[in-house]
Design a protein around this nucleic acid. Structure first.
Lengths: 197, 197
DNA sequence: GTCTATATCTTGATAGAC
DNA sequence: GTCTATCAAGATATAGAC
């Protein structure tokens, strides 16, 4: 009997730990997304998660490690690899816009994006783990001598629209819906991915 | 004679003040461009300018005021208003790229751009004093119901390319020269500014 | 597992000597 | 005009009690 209660205690402890960590990561994601890395404090994360600041350090080790756990953004690139050249512009557009639909993914994406200009780890993650894989897939589908540059420009345009819409909050882009963006953006993206004349 | 030496002293004092301020603003511009608002300290600015930290506060009052003096970016929009609809894509492209040629303007532009995602004053300045005026001029030239949105998307793409190239340092964009960017980007921008079919 | 207390550092800003 | 000295606030991180 003693054995069982011990096991139960271990399970309960692990469960509590799991819940605490989940709450901490969720709170960190939100705050990093709202304020960026530098202006987000361990204390503020602990407050929002309803735990003690010391616990955050205990469980994650450092602020940088917490950021890495919270701002990891892995947009699924299946739709990107599956797309033919003709489908590429629409696939790229929705590849990005879809990321801002699911609240969790949205917060993680915003956290990484907002910090990518002022936090070195975020910049490298954005460039090498988010943009580079997408660029590679797109370049493969485009082909030709300028493929890498064309894919990079396509990426850059989608990034600029995302930043303007979700971070800078440019009115015209905030007010626009998905259909508006498709109507204006798709023809332009087609000119980037189209075969060399 | 006493009068004249007094005047000379005043002039010399004003001259020294002018030089100190210029050195401080130049140093601040560089550091804000390199590290952003939060990671730039008054002490670091003073060090690079070769003056005392106290002098920076004395002459500018606050870190925010120093940022406003250093990161003010007023890209000339004459070429943008003068452009016809056909000339608009090229004018918009060079409107941006030219800003990164002159070292002083480049540093001021980078300072504002880098901080615009994490510093509220920089975000508002970027949105309302840099993007909005350009958007207005472009929209006027484009005309039609979607003019504002089209102009905003054009702005966003140029911003995304600038951020990817100068801040994130995406290799394919860093390696590209002006001619490369024109070749890839211009046809795409034309699709944004062209008349409704 | 969780929290308290605190060490250590760094910041923006101020007061006053020179 | 410029610099020295210092304040007060806030940060991350650590050690140890519970």
């Amino acid at each position: 009997m003693e054995r069982e209660t011990e096991e139960a205690a271990v399970v309960a402890r692990a469960e509590r730990r799991r819940r605490s960590d989940a709450a901490i990561v969720a709170a960190a994601r939100e705050l990093f997304a709202e304020r960026g890395f530098d202006r987000t404090t361990i204390r503020a994360v602990a407050d929002r998660a309803g735990v003690d600041p010391g616990l955050v350090m205990q469980n994650f080790g450092s602020k940088d490690a917490l950021f890495a756990a919270a701002a990891r953004w892995s947009a699924p690139i299946e739709q990107l690899v599956a797309a033919t050249r003709d489908e590429l512009p629409a696939a790229a557009l929705h590849h990005v816009l879809d990321a801002f639909e699911d609240p969790r993914e949205r917060a993680a994406a915003l956290a990484l994006m907002r910090s990518s200009l002022t936090h070195e780890a975020a910049r490298v993650a954005m460039r090498d783990e988010v943009l580079a894989p997408a660029q590679e897939r797109v370049a493969d589908t485009i082909g030709g001598p300028d493929a890498a540059l064309r894919a990079a420009v396509l990426n850059a345009c989608m990034l600029g629209v995302s930043i303007s819409r979700y971070l800078l909050e440019v009115p015209a882009l905030v007010d626009a819906d998905t259909a508006d963006l498709e109507r204006i953006l798709l023809p332009a993206l087609e000119r980037i991915t189209e075969p060399i004349r």
